Simulated assay, not measured.
Amino acid sequence: MSHNIRKYLLAPFVYTAALLLLLEEWLWDASKRLFARLPLIPFIVRLEAWVAGVPPYVALVIFVLPSLLLFPVKILALMSITHGHPTLGLIIIVSAKVLGTALVARVYTLTQKALLSLPWFARYRDIILRFKDRMIAQLRATHAWQQVEAGLAAFKEARRRWWATFKEHWSGRNRRNGHGNRLARMIKKYAARRRDRE
């Protein structure tokens, strides 16, 4: 009986933690993709090359630095909330979270090889990842989460069908109006000019 009571009391905390971990994971992956696509200026390229080649403990300092630098920003956000500016405080917290996750994700990508050469870092990283996977698995096993996933899947399928219908309708209208042929002719003329110049 006491085990069941404890389980029900802890459930909201487990699910909240799992949701936060899922959000963190999404931000992490989205940040890595975004930074990979951004055009980088030469200075940033040189800086990233230097960061990727630093020794393990220097890499550790660089990895921890963004979180330390954002700590005063979070304190500022809490002060804004306590002084009657909850919206401003929330905007600061969310912005710091997104920026911090993006920065840490990029730094980790650059320093991962050096960091994982530290045995204790690799060990604790594996412990944290196993804990995160266990929490998320508990959340995904719930009926409520499965309903949310089913709803999202239905929404994505409806969006995909709508987009396919829209594209088909648009291309059909262009063909009827002659826009499609005109565009094809323009592209061919441009390609021919390029070949002539070469």
Rank of each mutant, 00 (worst) to 15 (best):
R197G: 08
M79E: 13
W26F: 10
L69E: 04
A114H: 00
D126S: 04
T142V: 10
L9H: 12
Y8F: 13
A141C: 02
R33H: 06
L20V: 05
F121S: 11
R134A: 14
R161F: 08
F63P: 05
L10Y: 13
V94E: 08
M79P: 07
D126A: 08
W163N: 15
I127V: 14
N174V: 07
V64D: 06
S31I: 10
A30L: 15
Q138L: 06
A144R: 02
A192L: 01
Y57E: 07
K97R: 15
V51T: 02
A184T: 11
D29M: 07
K188R: 15
D196P: 01
A36I: 13
A137Y: 12
G178S: 04
E198S: 15
V61S: 13
R176G: 02
K113F: 12
I187F: 00
A102K: 02
G180A: 08
N174K: 03
Y124R: 07
L152Y: 10
I44K: 12
P12T: 06
L40T: 05
Q112G: 03
I91H: 14
D29V: 14
K113Q: 14
R134I: 05
T165C: 13
I75W: 11
L23K: 11
P39Q: 10
A114M: 05
F63H: 07
D133P: 00
V94Q: 00
R182L: 07
A158T: 09
L47C: 05
H83A: 04
L139D: 02
L116H: 05
A122Y: 04
T111L: 05
A102I: 12
R173K: 10
T111V: 13
A192I: 12
K189C: 00
V104H: 08
P119M: 11
L70Q: 06
G89N: 01
T109K: 08
L47M: 13
P86Y: 04
G172W: 00
L90A: 15
S171R: 15
D126E: 05
M186N: 11
T111H: 05
V61W: 11
A191Q: 10
P42H: 04
V61Y: 04
